[in-house]
């Protein structure tokens, strides 16, 4: 059961909330207690825009049982517009459609279901940015 962990991290997973250093302005995701850039402990919560580009990616064909329904699926390093590089699963895109540098945007999706009786865990994934 991941209930306590997911509850504790819900604003991070649901809202892409990280931290911004009050001293040097560095933005971090996941949130930090000490700024890795200037070592200050003066940090405030910062919500990222959820926009970025694909830095690199890989496609998974053999997964844990939990993610069986999703395979093949791709995970990516996404460079957020505000700076940090984060690891994320990609949504709504086949392995052949992803390109390095592609603009992506955050969406909320099911991450996994904890069996038939457990909780459904939701969180951020990224998909190719919608075109109007």
């Amino acid at each position: 059961m991941d209930i306590p962990r997911y509850w504790r991290l819900r604003n991070q997973r649901y809202r892409l909330e990280g931290t911004e250093c009050i001293e040097c302005g560095q933005r971090n995701f996941p949130p930090r207690c000490i700024c890795p850039h200037c070592k200050s402990d003066s940090l405030k919560s910062f919500r990222f825009s959820g926009r970025g580009t694909v830095y690199s990616f890989s496609t998974i064909y053999q997964a844990l049982d939990t993610f069986d329904k999703d395979i093949p699926y791709s995970i990516a390093l996404v460079k957020l517009d505000e700076g940090p590089l984060i690891t994320t699963q990609l949504a709504d895109v086949g392995p052949d459609e992803i390109q390095i540098g592609q603009p992506v945007e955050m969406v909320i999706r099911k991450i996994y279901e904890d069996g038939e009786n457990g909780p459904i865990q939701y969180g951020y994934k990224f998909r190719p940015a919608l075109k109007e």
Binding site: D70, A91, D92, R109, K110, I111, I120, K125
Partner: peptide, 13 residues
């Protein structure tokens, strides 16, 4: 719906 979508995720968007 995609394999990671349900009424909650769609309601959010």
């Amino acid at each position: 719906p995609g394999p990671d979508e349900d009424t909650i995720t769609m309601s959010i968007e």
